[in-house]
Design a protein around this nucleic acid. Structure first.
Length: 652
DNA sequence: CCCCCCCC
């Protein structure tokens, strides 16, 4: 197995080598424990051995699990170099390994390859002709929220002008804006903490500052500068609790090495909120690093930063080409169906329909909220609702069916259907100038606009083209065969079914009159009715409907429970009316049930295993009963046929 | 120092 001889020298001189093959000769833990571990690698290209190589912390597990044991030959898929001060002897370049692939495990290799000698800057000649520059620059950043001035044209017409040149200068020096900088910043790398430079306190952050990779930041070093792009930003939020009150906003930063969240409180909040713009690049120094609470961030970093009175931030107006653009990690819309609630997701789709802005008061917080549902579709013939909130909802313009790309959306589940909601730190772009967007638009113009879609989101009003109500339409037999409901959690599905039988006895029960209770009360036979749930007696009860029905389709039938709201729709009577009828005329009462018999609906079912009298049984409740949308039903049959037959898109 | 992220 050949190593890429000479690669280390090139890299350490600032040149670039695409995915060199190297050998790991040793590794050493150099700082911290647990979350703060960092490893130094001894890495060889067969000619030289470099002891100033570091492993990005996200790869620590690869050391711990023995994947990168001594003598392992690896392909270094991604790396960067960083200039750090060298104990008063100027700068030293450090190689940071961001991604590796094992070519041959150490146990198989058995020993070191070649006779590599220690690399040193002095000994090395000028770099060999640098290899071609890697990684062409990504598409220019499109603007993010607010999604103002939507354009129907597929372009980044609402984007800040892209200043990035088409390719980077060579040799590449990603993390050194100016290699010969005047010292000052930088410092502590790993556990290599130096005495503080005197007189640095009041120094202004220079646009030429030597910068550090985000992945190298830890709380144990306070002298660093990062050059990073803002990928998302929240609005200013005010908080008030027992510990005090204040305002804050946060923003997410990315560079070639990693990502990190920054939060600004109170004074810093006011100071920095206006200048921080999504998509732009900044130099940042003197913020406080602290351990990130993983519960509240999905960013790949063990730390986050808080801005302090000392913090300096300056925008980088030019040459931000070395800093990656906002990266999406798109999931297909059909994949969202199987995602866990609260999962973070990036999605892209064509706006198929746009709902109205809906205002309501949240029960828990009493806050007035505004939301808007937007339905997007993609090549997988799947439709998903995006839920926009607040200003995003108000300003969204989905006319002329733009492409929307969402970063940091949140998967929501409601009654078994999935939607993607945009929390405060999520961003979206309208018609972003990225390949996925163009591809999608092309597909939509060609065939998507006339295709039939399966919605994995419950239809919640707004426009929409004949889909949504028959999502995950299956048969009762399918539901049984798939074991729905037996997974320890409720499952939802829809069935086109017919009411075979409706039991008229016990259709009305005496429910607790307490607000939002509805528990069955016990007649105390003294004019009072006891609710065990509320733990009190009431002088009255309210009649409620609870129907036991047999619902059948062509495949099978099932006994299901139908509660008040749905029962009212099916019977066309309120419980009070029915209760009265029951007292006055048994015939008229029965007539109501007979009239409903053999009616067909699209039933939304909720099924779950439950224990009753020590006996396990599958419970099935009807969540909704909707008038069958025959057009949509035929559409879903067509989609199914198409899948079965492996056909292309079926036109309506 | 927040950590709410909403509704049917």
């Amino acid at each position: 197995m050949d190593l890429t001889e000479g690669a280390l020298s090139t890299i350490m001189n600032g040149g670039n080598v695409e995915a060199p093959i190297m050998q790991i000769l040793g590794s050493k833990k150099i700082s911290g424990a647990g979350d703060n571990e960092r490893y130094r690698l001894l890495i060889s290209d067969g000619v030289h051995v470099n002891s100033f190589a570091m492993l990005a912390t996200q790869l620590n597990d690869r050391i711990r699990n023995g994947d990168l044991s001594d003598n392992t030959i690896v392909r270094v898929k991604r790396h960067i170099t960083s200039s750090v001060p060298n104990s008063g002897k100027g700068q030293k370049r450090v190689m940071i390994i961001l991604d590796v692939e094992v070519v041959a495990p150490g146990s198989e290799v058995g020993g070191r390859i070649g006779n590599p000698v220690s690399w040193s800057a002095d000994a090395s000649a000028a770099p060999a002709a640098p290899a071609p520059v890697a990684a062409p620059t990504a598409a220019p950043a499109a603007s993010s929220r607010p999604a103002s001035a939507n354009s129907c044209a597929l372009s980044s017409s609402n984007s800040p002008p892209a200043k990035a040149p088409p390719s980077r200068p060579s040799p590449q020096k990603p993390f050194s804006a100016n290699a010969g900088n005047r010292g000052g910043y930088g410092g502590g790398y790993g556990n290599n903490i130096r005495s503080p430079n005197k007189g640095m306190g009041g120094m202004e952050l220079s646009p030429n500052a030597s910068t550090h990779p985000i992945a190298s930041l830890t709380p144990y070093q306070n002298k660093w500068v990062i050059k990073a792009r803002v990928t998302g930003k929240t609005n200013i939020r005010h908080w008030s609790n027992s510990k005090g009150e204040g305002s804050l906003f946060s923003f997410d930063l990315v560079d070639e090495s990693g990502e990190i969240r920054a939060t600004a409180f109170r004074d810093q909040c006011e100071k920095f909120h206006p200048m921080i713009e999504v998509g732009k690049v900044y130099l940042i120094t003197k913020a406080q690093l602290k351990t990130a609470n993983k519960k509240f961030s999905s960013l790949n970093n063990d730390y986050e930063m808080s801005l302090t009175g000392e913090t300096q931030i300056i925008p980088v107006h030019e040459d931000d080409s070395g800093v990656p653009q906002i990266k999406f990690n798109f999931s297909s819309l059909n994949d969202i169906e199987n995602m866990e609630p609260n999962a973070s997701v990036d999605v892209i789709g064509v706006v198929k329909s746009v709902g109205e802005v809906v205002t309501f008061v949240a029960k828990t917080s009493n806050r007035e909220l505004k939301k808007r549902d937007v339905t997007i579709v993609d090549r997988t013939n799947t439709a998903v609702n995006l839920t926009l909130w607040g200003q995003d909802a108000e300003e969204f313009d989905g006319s002329c069916q733009p492409v929307v790309a969402v970063k940091g959306g949140k998967v929501n589940e409601f009654q078994g259907s999935k939607t993607v909601s945009l929390p405060g730190n999520a961003t979206f772009q309208i018609n972003p100038d990225i390949p996925e967007s163009h591809e999608l638009k092309g597909w939509y113009d060609d065939e998507g606009s006339t295709a039939t879609f399966k919605s994995i989101s419950q239809r919640t009003g707004g426009g929409g083209g004949g889909f949504g109500s028959d999502n995950d339409l299956i048969t009762i037999k399918d539901a049984r065969d798939q074991g729905l409901g037996s997974g320890g959690k409720p499952d939802y599905f829809s069935v086109k079914g017919t009411l075979i039988m409706i039991k008229s006895e016990n259709a009305i029960y005496q429910a607790c009159p307490g607000e939002n209770c509805n528990k069955k009360v016990i007649d105390q036979q003294n004019g009072m009715f006891r609710c065990e749930k509320c733990g009190r007696d009431y002088p009255n009860y309210k009649p409620r409907l609870l129907l036991s029905c047999s619902v059948g389709d062509w495949s099978d039938n099932a006994w299901v429970s139908i509660f008040q709201e749905v029962a009212e729709v099916i019977l066309g009577k309120s419980p009070e009316e029915l209760d009265e009828l029951k007292q006055s005329s048994a015939d008229a009462y029965q007539q109501v049930f007979q009239a409903a018999q053999f009616k067909s609906f699209t039933f939304r079912m909720r099924t779950q295993m439950s224990v009753y009298n020590d006996e396990q049984r599958m419970k099935m409740n009807v969540v909704s009963a909707k008038k069958i949308d025959h057009k949509a039903y035929c559409g879903s049959l067509l989609t199914e046929l198409k899948e079965v037959l492996g056909m292309g898109t079926v036109s309506k």
